[in-house]
């Protein structure tokens, strides 16, 4: 009896220790960070619009220049509860004291300076594919933005998602800097588009269906998904049935710039913010994104019919 109890305790300790080891935060290699040149704020502004930080970190409903004040407060409704995007302006309430290394570890490894895991509602599973130099430039740009002293509300999550440690296991399954799809014979524009879409643009975070643990199902990359907010869908943007095969590359680039679809409907929902960001991106980059979307594998809709 005594022996059995001992065995059980040992097993529990091993399991607990295993969980603790497997869920530990990991950071970027110091050599990788040391290779970056000092950040350039002008280039960083381009990265800022590619990355769409304002969609989540500007105040809710902000438009025009107000989208440069990253005060936080936007609510993201998910199956796990409601996340509230924090203040990331250069202020004590934001990330005023953060080094470039801190920002790179947050964006590419989902780890805070104090070692906490971030929730993947912050789309670092996409940002993990970014180039370190882009993050150095972005860091320089973020410091030129106006400070805000707003303190965002805490997240409202269901148990057990309130415990951050478990995110370490999720990262072992889903956090990778590898491309989401392999494209044979991709030209320079398609390669640039792949970087922009799969990395900073984080388009897959909305347009790709998720599995039971909230990881992106890359076998149905960009096939569309039920809306995380419970009503409606996010459309299929591959060339498959229900998708956008009939759109030319120019149609896609113009929709990203202006919000107008080929039949002159105007993109709405959460895509309206993406269009606001994309209208600041260079025309060449919008064309690269369009070229990439025309090159990815076609899939039928990644969501059940709603009507």
């Amino acid at each position: 009896m005594r022996k059995l109890a001992m065995l059980l305790i040992v097993l529990l300790l091993v399991a607990g220790g295993g969980f603790w080891l497997l869920s530990a935060p990991t950071r970027l290699e110091p050599q990788l960070l040391a290779a970056a040149q000092p950040g350039d704020a002008t280039r960083g502004e381009a990265v800022f619009w590619q990355g769409g930080c304002a969609s989540c970190h500007a105040a809710p409903g902000a438009s025009g220049d107000a989208r440069r004040v990253l005060a936080g407060g936007v609510q993201l409704v998910t199956d796990f509860g409601t996340f509230v995007a924090p203040n990331i302006s250069p202020s004590p309430q934001g990330i005023g004291g953060w080094s470039f290394e801190d920002l790179a570890n947050a964006m590419m490894k989902g780890v805070a300076p104090d070692g906490r895991h971030f929730y993947p509602a912050f789309p670092y599973a996409s940002y993990a594919r970014m180039q370190v130099q882009d993050i150095a430039d972005l860091h320089a740009f973020l410091q030129t933005l106006p400070p805000s002293d707003h303190v965002a509300e805490p997240h409202r999550l269901k148990f057990p998602y309130t415990l951050r440690r478990g995110i370490g296991l999720w990262k072992r399954l889903y956090l990778s800097s590898q491309p989401a799809v392999t494209l044979a014979g991709a030209d320079e524009a398609v390669k640039r588009g792949q970087y922009l879409v799969e990395g900073p643009g984080h388009c897959g975070e909305c347009h790709t269906p998720r599995d039971g643990f909230g990881g992106l199902d890359t076998s149905r990359w960009m096939a569309g998904a039920p809306s995380p907010e419970g009503k409606g869908v996010i459309p299929n943007i591959t060339g498959g049935e229900g998708g956008i095969d009939s759109w030319s590359a120019q149609d896609i680039a113009y929709a990203l710039e202006s919000g107008f679809t080929p039949d002159f409907d105007s993109l709405g929902g959460s895509m309206a913010d993406v269009v606001q960001n994309m209208s600041h991106v260079s025309a060449a980059d919008r064309e690269a994104i369009a070229a990439y979307l025309k090159a990815i594998p076609a899939h039928p809709n990644g969501y059940p019919a709603t009507r």
Binding site: S227, G232, G268, A305, R307
Partner: peptide, 8 residues
């Protein structure tokens, strides 16, 4: 953005 939802 606010008053419309995409259905399919």
């Amino acid at each position: 953005q606010t008053y419309r939802i995409k259905k399919d």
